[in-house]
Design a protein around this nucleic acid. Structure first.
Lengths: 298, 298
DNA sequence: TGGTGTCATAGGTTGAGGCTATAACTGATC
DNA sequence: GATCAGTTATAGCCTCAACCTATGACACCA
């Protein structure tokens, strides 16, 4: 569902947060490279858009109202996500020209990497990171060929010839809409899952593969996909409307599960854990930048 | 630090995600209430801004490229935060006219409530929620006066005359910049903290109070504040630049800690836990909407 | 071989938002 | 107390970005 027609501008939110931080419209205007009257008018427009008084202005400076303080917190969440996108974008654009070349699988690139990249770029403003996204097999290829310094993959098996370190843990989980009959059951048998058509994300087919092999290990075949979609929010709408479950990386639906807009279903005897691992070629010694990145991931 | 000058528009990101979901520029244009050529040109502009080809167009429809898939995932994170802000905003505007009147403390309103409100408004599109933000004492007042149906507070002590339920757990943590000497120490004594000037957020003074009373319990007085700031990102910059620690709600810095842009410091013998609690007047029976909300919080 | 869908281009119009210049006010300093 | 450096708001002008309608080119299905 689209955003409201008069939703505030990213630039205005950014400007507003700067005003709260700096205590002055003029100072914020300077930081943003615009004239003070422009900033002033943008802020007035912002307040009219949201229908709240956000700032107390005085000839001595500007401070947020109570509503403004809370609003600034909410706006910061948006801006944080925006900065992460910006960091990811820079890495995408850098392609082969980066000082540190990363190849990552889809899931990792979407949900983990932006945060890493953003904090990395804050600590190493001079060094650019190049990002390439591909399935796990291709990531390994790139490392072997020396076209990437550091890879991130999600395959369950170990890779010979490569050094590795587990950096994160993921699970495939079954989720349904809150109104679905499964939502209230404590345990659903595997057979029921295998017999139910699924909505699938089907971007990196790594998740699909993992589901299939887990079911085959129990002598079952994976259920047919009733729909294959290209984005998480498409999956979410389809699950909500279509009454079908989906099996998807927990990372992709962590927020929905926390908010309760999707419900996790325990499948009896089916736990698909997978380690997300950093990998690199032991021949080429790991560049210092890569070591720094791995260290900051924790 | 401000966003880049040519950062994509929220509306364009929203449009792009819709295209990925629907597989068609025309369909996305319809959903967004704009003409197809406008959508087409906005998307082309978006691709020029980010410097990447995001879509494969054909007379049969439009599908995202690999980069487009990942980009859509990043964009969805921004849009999620935007929708949360929108839900919070609606609650702010509703003031006294909402069917469910909530009064919440600053920390809860900033970091927890938007997510709850968003999933709630999806499940109850007809019912509006009114939000008022105040310190914990004032929240209790509003409940007693019957001006609010449900309150959320963060005071450590129990409140007589009110029913309550713990909904979340919070901690005050000490954090420093990654380069700070404390960042590598395993344990810092309380006395060192009490002797060090702090940067503080100082929005809801609940956090300040909690720190003071915890220190006083050990016979210490709280350190002077070297700076009092109005927003989390202001605190973050001050901590990074000024080499001072801060003591702040873990909720407020959870993302920074995860990304490694701030580092948590364990203070010896100082653990300030506090329960975040929903409270309501037992006299007035809890409205069904409030029950639903509490249930979805989990 | 229409018909219905897709997307792109062209041309014209409008309005939002920017800038400069100025005014009104506060608080600190001399 | 007067001046100076700081703050924000208003007025007027201008430009360019973004929209819409109309049209064209191409693909797929019946």
């Amino acid at each position: 569902m689209p955003l409201g027609p008069s939703f505030p501008d990213l630039a205005s939110l950014d400007l507003f947060v700067s005003v709260v931080e700096l205590g002055s419209v003029s100072a914020a205007a300077r930081v943003h490279g615009v004239a003070q009257p422009s900033a002033s008018s943008r802020l007035k427009h912002l307040e009219r858009q949201v229908g709240l008084q956000l700032l107390d202005r005085s000839p001595a400076g500007t401070t947020p109202t109570d509503a403004g303080i809370v609003f600034a917190g909410w706006a910061e969440q948006i801006l944080r996500a925006a900065h992460e996108l910006q960091a990811g974008l820079a890495a995408f654009r850098a392609e082969q020209h980066g000082r540190l070349r990363i190849a990552a699988s889809f899931t990792i690139a979407e949900y983990l990497l932006p945060q890493w990249l953003q904090s990395f770029s804050q600590e190493h403003p001079a060094d650019s990171v190049a990002l390439e996204v591909a399935n796990s097999a291709h990531v390994i290829e790139r490392l072997r060929a020396g076209d990437a310094d550091l890879g991130f993959i999600e395959t369950p098996s170990q890779v010979p010839d490569l050094s590795e370190r587990v950096v994160e843990h993921d699970q495939l989980v079954a989720v349904v809409a809150p109104g679905h009959p499964w939502a209230t059951r404590t345990l659903v048998p595997v057979e029921a899952l295998a017999a139910t058509p699924l909505v699938t994300r089907e971007a990196g087919s790594g998740t699909r593969e993992a589901l299939e092999s887990a079911l085959e290990a129990r002598g079952l075949t994976a259920p047919p996909a009733v729909l294959e979609l290209g984005s998480t929010s498409a999956v979410r709408s389809a699950v909500l409307l279509g009454n079908s479950p989906t099996v998807i990386s927990r990372l992709a639906v962590a927020d929905e599960l926390a908010a309760g807009s999707l419900v996790e279903v325990s499948i009896e005897g089916l736990a698909i854990d997978r380690d997300l691992r950093a990998v690199w070629a032991p021949g080429h010694p790991l560049p210092p930048l890569a070591t720094d990145l791995l260290a900051s991931i924790g």
